[in-house]
Design a protein around this nucleic acid. Structure first.
Length: 463
RNA sequence: GCCCCCAUCGUCUAGCGGCCUAGGACAUCACCCUUUCAAGGUGACGGCACGGGUUCGAAUCCCGUUGGGGGUGCCA
């Protein structure tokens, strides 16, 4: 265990996907661990058997790796599994009981509800506190919340005070003998030497309870930091049911990890100047909890996309072509794609769009009827195509600039501008009205295929 | 209900008592460029929730109101 620097931790519970909010929390911890020369500890909180599947862990690891949180880095430690520390949790529970910080209670949730209703109170009211019950089947262990208040010193929000009168005697060990989150979480943090707990704001109300456990166990609580949650358009906490929260989904749609990381880091935090697109190293050196905003931030997919476009445009031609590769069908010729790639690069927001932009090159034409109706029904379409077929047949220098010059020559008698004149050719060859630059596309498609498409389209015009 | 947190353009944010006529980015709109669509360039639109204080001076400090969020489990 590396104890030379601060020890941060990321403690997700395993689920079938990796939440973008969790990604941000992980990133915050990772940035801090890196910049302080500390350690990032990964602990899988798998105590709830209902959600404990081994393959989920691989998902967490690969998601972290995608984010640049490298499990083979010396800064990284783990993964640890909470479930394998159950004995320690229970030992701590015993200590708490023996030292008078906790007591056993045999009331069931139903009992509590009934009695609370009868007495007109909201929750558990410490009814078994002084019964002196010994451990036994069906009994839970509860923490005896003392009089007074707890002040949580939070690096993001400052001091937050909780009056103990509003904190009920919470459960530490279930009636089936298993430890509850608040206990397990604290005991693990203690045994793993965690010094800094940085997590989402939803944990803030747990913090006084956890801090009481730390104190009762005679240990100095860690430094806390609660960052605001991520919300949807309705300003509700991002949820799996309503919202697109799976990191994997964004990855599969062709969001670059660098763009995702950059976007997530600048959600609720800024470098302090007017820049938002920043390399990770700079983010790391600048990031500070005190600069994190205090209000929930809307996870805006549109802005994420804008970041992604930005990152795509920053790539070199080679990087871009390589990045496109997984999104292209296997039988598409890569050299052909590379020839057109520089022209698709500024037109992409996500990589999942790439094949749709250049498919006409590889798959042949499929006419978009709206496009066809728009340009092929004009008087000039047929004669323009006739001329193009004639002139392009005679070309022996099949290059974009030459093809452009020829069309410009053809269009003169028609009194058209290039924008109008290229339209019929574009629809004939690509099937659509929009796409990559036309003459460059023709060059890549080649002379005979271009001519064949031109002739086919000409034949389709009824006149 | 109770507890806690929060409050600058539609959104993400800069601002930490005078540099603010409130800056940037996304989105939207217009124009320029142009080989369609993008990209790029220029510009426009648009905000300190409200009310009291404190101060010579408040987006910045204090209080209240309103609004939003989180929590209130033998989930994590």
């Amino acid at each position: 265990m590396n104890s030379s620097g601060p020890r941060f931790r990321f403690a997700p519970s395993p689920t079938g996907y990796f939440h973008v909010g969790g990604a941000r929390t992980a990133l915050f911890n990772w940035a801090l661990a890196t910049s302080t020369g500390g350690t990032f500890v990964l602990r899988i909180e798998d105590t709830d058997e209902a959600r404990n599947r081994p393959e989920w862990t691989d998902g967490i690891l690969s998601a972290l790796e995608w984010l640049g949180i490298d499990s083979s880095s010396p800064t990284f430690e783990g993964p640890y599994f909470q479930s394998s520390y159950a004995d320690e949790h229970l030992r701590a529970a015993d200590r708490l009981f023996e030292n008078g910080y906790a007591y056993y209670c045999e009331m069931s949730p139903d009992d509590i509800a009934q009695r609370a209703k009868a007495e007109g109170v909201t929750g558990y009211n410490g009814w078994s506190r002084d019964l002196g019950l010994e451990p036994g089947p069906g009994r839970v262990l509860r923490f005896k919340v003392p009089e007074g208040s707890t002040i949580v010193r939070d690096q993001v929000r400052g001091d937050v005070e909780f009056d103990h009168s509003v904190i009920e005697d919470f459960v530490l060990v279930r009636s089936n003998g298993t430890p509850v989150f608040n206990l397990a979480n604290v005991v693990d943090d203690m045994s793993m030497g965690i010094t800094n707990v940085i997590r989402a704001e939803e944990h803030l109300p747990n913090t006084p309870k956890q801090q009481m456990i730390w104190t009762a166990l005679d240990r100095e609580p860690p430094v806390w930091g609660h960052v605001p949650v991520l919300v949807n358009e309705q300003r509700k906490k991002l949820s799996k049911r309503r919202d697109k929260v799976a990191l994997e989904q964004y990855r599969d749609e062709g969001i670059l990890s660098d763009a995702m990381v950059n976007y997530l880091m600048t959600l609720g935090w800024s470098a302090g100047d007017d820049r938002e697109i920043l390399p990770w190293d700079e983010i790391t050196s600048l990031f500070a909890l005190g600069d994190v905003n205090l209000s929930p931030a809307f996870f805006d997919v549109k802005k994420l996309a804008a970041f992604n476009g930005e990152y795509i445009r920053m790539m070199s031609e080679d990087e871009f072509a390589a990045a496109c590769d997984p999104w292209l069908p296997d039988d598409w010729d890569r050299a052909t794609f590379a020839a057109i790639a520089p022209h698709v690069q500024p037109r992409l927001v996500t990589f999942s769009e790439v094949s749709g932009v250049v498919d006409f090159i590889f798959n042949g034409v499929e006419y978009d009827e709206a496009s066809w109706d728009k340009v092929m029904t004009t008087d000039v379409a047929a004669p323009l195509l006739d001329e193009s077929i004639l002139r392009y047949s005679a070309v022996d220098n099949w290059q974009a600039d030459n093809l452009k010059a020829i069309l410009e020559h053809i269009m003169e008698p028609f009194g058209l501008k290039l924008g109008k004149a290229q339209a019929p050719v574009r629809v004939a060859v690509t099937g659509r009205t929009v796409g990559p630059p036309l003459f460059e596309s023709l060059e890549v498609i080649g002379q005979s295929e271009t001519l064949s498409r031109l002739r086919h389209a000409r034949g389709r015009i009824s006149t």
